[in-house]
Simulated scan of single mutants.
Amino acid sequence: MSPKEHKQMEQLIIESAEDLFMEKGSASTSTTEIAKKAGCNQTLVHYYFRTKEKLFQAIFERKIKAFLTVFEDIGNMDLPFEEKLKRIIDNHFELISVNSRLPFFILNEMTTNPSRIGILKEKFAPMATNVYSRLDSDMKKAIQEGKIRKMETLELFITILSLNISVFLLHPILKEVLDLKKEKFREYARKRKKQNIEIILNSLTPEKRGNYEKKVFTRIGIDDRSLPSCPDKPGRVPDKSSGALSLDTTVGADRKSPELLSGRSQYDVYAPFDPVG
């Protein structure tokens, strides 16, 4: 065979093996089945990949890398945090959409062969660390600027994965129980992607409690017991007539003001906010 034909045969074996691994799992797939599907003899499968495990590893690593690359490429873009997040959720969803059996594949292989986790960690640790660190840095900056509420990066990461993946994990059940046709599911998936973006962005909105927003004030020589309680949230509101309280931080801030002066103490209150503005 020419070099081009060798490359084509290798790719055909990979595609055939991927279909079978996705459908049956690696343990239930034989090299004989892979060769038959690829239209070659078993010897060629071993020639290109030596063992079934090495063939599986090549496919598994390629899929994991595709997932990480989505986060890495967008994370390196010079974009506002909200726009980055939208693109990450959108691209991650689309990646699963064109590889709808991938979530089952990964979960099954990780569960039945836990040693694969260690192999992947060794191979992709630098890339995964870079992806996570960049997202963590962007989140902390957005929190510091008051653009999003305080949230752990891991919490956000898991939320994105679970919301996007669950759509496709449930597909086989919905298909059978609700007789959900392919086109109908695609329509549902398109809507669900938009909803996932909205759900995640809304979950990051700076915290609002009832009709009150949390603000931080400095108290100057005043007995806080003289301040009236907020009607629908335990706490205090500023006594405007006394002029004893001054606003220290921006609306929606959960952090204490770094500008606390000597002799003053800080005071958390819930003050009315304009839901429109």
Results as ranks from 00 to 15, higher is better:
residue 5 E to I: 09
residue 8 Q to F: 06
residue 15 E to D: 13
residue 23 E to H: 06
residue 26 S to M: 13
residue 26 S to P: 01
residue 29 T to V: 03
residue 35 A to G: 05
residue 36 K to T: 06
residue 37 K to N: 07
residue 47 Y to A: 11
residue 48 Y to Q: 03
residue 65 K to D: 11
residue 66 A to K: 06
residue 82 E to Q: 14
residue 82 E to P: 10
residue 84 K to C: 14
residue 85 L to M: 14
residue 96 I to V: 15
residue 100 S to Q: 13
residue 106 I to R: 04
residue 110 M to I: 15
residue 111 T to Q: 06
residue 111 T to M: 08
residue 111 T to G: 02
residue 123 K to D: 04
residue 126 P to Y: 01
residue 129 T to L: 14
residue 129 T to K: 15
residue 131 V to R: 05
residue 135 L to H: 02
residue 136 D to T: 13
residue 144 Q to R: 08
residue 146 G to P: 07
residue 147 K to A: 01
residue 150 K to P: 01
residue 151 M to W: 05
residue 153 T to W: 03
residue 160 I to H: 01
residue 164 N to Y: 08
residue 164 N to M: 04
residue 164 N to I: 05
residue 164 N to Q: 06
residue 164 N to H: 03
residue 164 N to P: 11
residue 170 L to V: 00
residue 170 L to A: 14
residue 170 L to Q: 09
residue 178 L to H: 09
residue 180 L to H: 01
residue 181 K to E: 15
residue 183 E to K: 10
residue 184 K to W: 02
residue 184 K to V: 05
residue 186 R to C: 07
residue 187 E to G: 05
residue 189 A to M: 07
residue 193 K to R: 08
residue 194 K to H: 02
residue 198 E to A: 12
residue 203 S to E: 04
residue 212 Y to G: 03
residue 218 T to H: 02
residue 221 G to I: 06
residue 224 D to N: 04
residue 225 R to V: 06
residue 226 S to P: 01
residue 226 S to N: 05
residue 229 S to F: 11
residue 231 P to Q: 00
residue 233 K to C: 07
residue 235 G to V: 01
residue 237 V to P: 01
residue 237 V to D: 00
residue 239 D to S: 03
residue 242 S to D: 04
residue 242 S to C: 06
residue 244 A to S: 10
residue 245 L to N: 06
residue 248 D to M: 12
residue 249 T to M: 07
residue 249 T to I: 10
residue 249 T to W: 01
residue 252 G to C: 08
residue 254 D to M: 14
residue 258 P to T: 07
residue 258 P to D: 04
residue 262 S to M: 08
residue 263 G to W: 08
residue 264 R to T: 14
residue 266 Q to G: 02
residue 266 Q to T: 05
